[in-house]
Design a protein around this nucleic acid. Structure first.
Lengths: 224, 224
DNA sequence: TAGATTGTTAATCGATTAACAATC
DNA sequence: TAGATTGTTAATCGATTAACAATC
């Protein structure tokens, strides 16, 4: 079992496979071939087979893949059969939105604590979870064994609190603050940079304009 | 001017350059070489130079790059010197979080409308913007010329409303609903799939466990 | 002028796609 | 058995890194 490292390109695609398979299950589809799935998902059948074969042979020649089985297996690969304790640090709008997102619970992510620096928010409860002051973070994390910390706080505070959390035993950071965290290599960091995402939209809109300008220049040259 | 297509890998990195240059400006750094920047950003100097040269020669041999100039130029490339009208469709927690995120305004993204299906939310205002009923979407979009629509609504409603918005003139969709939108190729779609992001965290946590198990197996074999 | 660093070409690496033998 | 479709190897494509001549 020479566990070759799975490329992050593959890992990025797994949740999307999982989502499509879940939808197929809801429609009571029992089996699907890589070809059919590739048409739905707008990727190549070859890529689907390659991706899946990183983890094992889930299909059967001449038949395809059993939807429910493949769904379950990808779920296991993604660790969705596990339970993870999550805290949210920063109880602003975004933190509250995450805390209220009940879908996470279904996938095994349980929010066990919400923290904020702002004393005005302390004592407020979100889905039954009381908002605590950040001063209690250290004790809480050490006593409860937190797996994942979502950082939904200002960029000025994120790097320090991120480092502290890791020091206290948090294994993964889901970072929404618009800054990079400098953490040891064995810490898992997943960034969600909304501002950067919106800038890509903006780039593409601007690019569309540039293309149109270009076309007009070319049209003008034809007239000459 | 043979405008070769810029790869999406490059476009993904641009906002990060922009962010680092902004931070350097705040620290009154006047010039920086690709080497210095590469060390800060943990990428190769070669990649920085390649990326920038897709858009033009912004540096100077023997000197490096002028921080403020490069910042401004990347801003233009990203279209941040433009103004875009944004609507938010879905005034739940996430929609409200986006509406309250004042940083977007600074970058030229102006929220001009917020919509929801839920009549209970109608009339409520967020940062001075009244929440409207979705029935008014068509008229509003046609009259106001919306550039970007953020979809923060349930996955069941997202595809239909997305298609409608495009039909009514919206040019880009910032999609937070956990579903794919099937839209014409000339429509810009940027997906923010939080559930998928969290699953990648989960994958990596689970993978860390698997690695540890593997090490123990190997350690056990040595003992024999 | 000498040193530094870019812009750019060439080499390498990795990811995607194509092809097909294995097999259900 | 014949047809379908996987698992996997080989070919292609694209992105990253290295190298260096151009030049400030």
């Amino acid at each position: 079992m020479n566990d070759k490292e799975i490329s992050s390109a593959v890992v990025k695609r797994l949740p999307r496979y999982y989502r499509y398979l879940g939808e197929l299950m809801e429609k009571d589809v029992v089996r699907i071939s890589s070809k059919e799935l590739s048409e739905k998902m707008k990727v190549t059948a070859s890529q689907i087979r390659q991706d899946l074969n990183n983890f094992g042979g889930f299909g059967q020649q001449g038949y395809g893949y059993n939807v429910e089985y493949l769904y379950t297996e990808i779920g296991k690969i993604l660790g969705l059969d596990r339970h993870y304790k999550v805290i949210i640090v920063g109880a602003g709008n975004l933190g509250q939105a995450l805390a209220n997102y009940t879908d996470f619970e279904k996938r095994g992510f349980r929010v066990v604590g919400i923290f904020d620096v702002n004393p005005r928010l302390i004592g407020m409860t979100i889905r039954g979870i009381e908002v605590r002051i950040v001063d209690e973070l250290e004790t809480f994390v050490k006593e409860n064994g937190v797996d994942i910390a979502a950082l939904t706080l200002p960029k000025t505070k994120a790097p320090q609190i991120g480092s502290d959390l890791v020091k206290w035993g948090v294994r993964a950071i889901w970072n929404f603050a618009p800054t990079d965290l400098n953490l040891p290599d064995d810490v898992i960091v997943e960034n969600v940079h909304l501002a950067e995402s919106l800038m890509r939209v903006s780039y593409n809109l601007r690019n569309r304009e540039r293309e149109l300008e270009q076309e007009q220049v070319l049209a003008g040259m034809e007239e000459k």
